[in-house]
Amino acid sequence: MRALLFLDTENESTGISSLAKAVSFALAFSFLCLLAMAAFASLEYDWNWSAVYRYKTKFIDGWLVTIQVSSVSLVVACLIGGLSALAARSPFLPLRYLSKIYIEGTRGTPLLVQILLIFYVFADAAHLDNRYVVGVLVLSLFSGAYVSEIFRAGIESVGSSQLLSAKAIGFTPYQTFRYIVFPQALRRSLPALAGQFANLIKDSSLLSIIAIGEFTLNAQEVNTSTLSTFESFFPLAVGYLILTLPIFYLSRHLEKRLAFDL
């Protein structure tokens, strides 16, 4: 019994058995469920799943839009992040500052503020009236700043001794980047990039504010039509977890594999 619930602190190297993991997880999970049920019991909540169930295609459509918007944004964010990371190392100094201002400005302001600013001010001025394009653009710009920092860390993780070796061999600066720095930087960036993708998926929910029909907005609309708040928003949380948990898991897995493999 004790072995199922407690970590063997005397010889930690043996690790935790999978049975102990399963039992302990089940305990923790049931505790949270009990807590939630107690809360609903005291609310005398009127369950109405059938009304919400009628809107299931609305949930699925929104969920798919969230995946699409996040995926396209990730690709564009990688492009922006890559260019910005390169610009930050450019011998042409104004480019460096451009990249610096972009990164600090983006990381220093809330995404919601950026969405409002770009949607109501810049997009209007540029006559961009497809709100999906604007949404992807905002998310990409926002995420690109973080991706740029991820790439920068990856590039800097390639040690100076390797750069000296590459120079001694006779590689040009371009060849050094192409064959030595880039492949290693990319591999070391992958775990963090995966994590960033999960963040993007969560952050995309804020696009509901400019009426983009993604997962969160659709759930809000179901809530308005059915007045079943919990039944509308519980699937919302689960829908996000279905996307983010595997990605976080993948990220952790990549991290472990790369740790052994360099």
Binding site: S161, G170, I180, Q184, R187
Partner: peptide, 20 residues
């Protein structure tokens, strides 16, 4: 200089090889 470096070989104390 690059052409010159191509005509010689250098071996350092360690970390000469590219790990990937």
């Amino acid at each position: 200089l690059r052409r010159y470096r191509k005509s010689i070989g250098v071996v350092f104390q360690s970390y000469n090889l590219f790990p990937h």
